[in-house]
Design a protein around this nucleic acid. Structure first.
Lengths: 122, 122
DNA sequence: CGCTATTGACTACAAGCGTAGATGATGCGA
DNA sequence: TCGCATCATCTACGCTTGTAGTCAATAGCG
């Protein structure tokens, strides 16, 4: 489907998902929390995301307001699916087993997982 | 830690994880199931994996026997962790919720997840 | 002992990525 | 109306990736 979003581009996407629409400057400010990027870098990333059709811009006076064209949920879904397929042969439980063995599961996670399972069984 | 393994390189790693040690030819044959790569391509990938120190080679006559230096489990663990951190703020349950909402959970997965949770609670 | 087939090393090359400078248009304040 | 600040666009450049060709060494066969 929509082209691959690179690591750096994703940081910009996150900023837009957090709030939109935003000007390039807004995005740069928001991104500055994570990365030490110049404004130019952020603009380049915005323009690459534009050509990948994952964001759109609407003109507002002499600047542009950018907004995401793909929902974060959709992106996250496709990335998670890709990982599960690549590394776990499409099976989800080994992934969780893996994370569990790394102690990446918080008590809260465990409780929530139980909820999820309960919901699925009915 | 060890450097990033690219998509194509991962295919080669999978072949080595499946069985090792193997010669370049063995790997190429095994890889041929997935990808239409020339033997040269596989050799290049092997040599890049060597310089990334994720595989090692031992000389056997005039050829080399390659073997992985990182366990598949370790790699998988770090990749899963990365994904969970990048996309879910380190929380595991939203990942599973996400996959569940895509119907990626098989009945078997659900049963196994219950087992995992049971194990964790004790 | 010389030739050929095999094998790793070196080289290549286009596309994508991370990072950013230079340029050019333009709206606004003086 | 003129200069400046502000934007977006164009260009750049070194690095990685995907894919593969060529070269040089060498082991084994005849």
């Amino acid at each position: 489907m929509s082209e691959k979003i690179s690591e750096a581009e994703l940081v910009v996407m996150e900023a837009l998902w957090e709030q939109s629409p935003q000007t390039a400057n807004d995005v740069a400010d928001r991104v500055a929390a994570d990365r030490e990027w110049s404004l130019q870098t952020v603009k380049t990333l915005l323009s690459r995301l534009m050509s990948k059709d994952v964001i759109a811009a609407e003109q507002d006076g002499r600047r542009f307001l950018y907004r995401p064209m793909v929902a974060r949920d959709d992106y996250v879904a496709s990335e998670s699916g890709r990982l599960v397929n690549r590394l776990f042969g499409g099976r989800v439980s080994p992934l969780v087993a893996q994370l569990a063995s790394q102690d990446q599961l918080t008590a809260e996670d465990i409780a929530e997982l139980e909820e999820i399972l309960k919901g699925l069984k009915s």
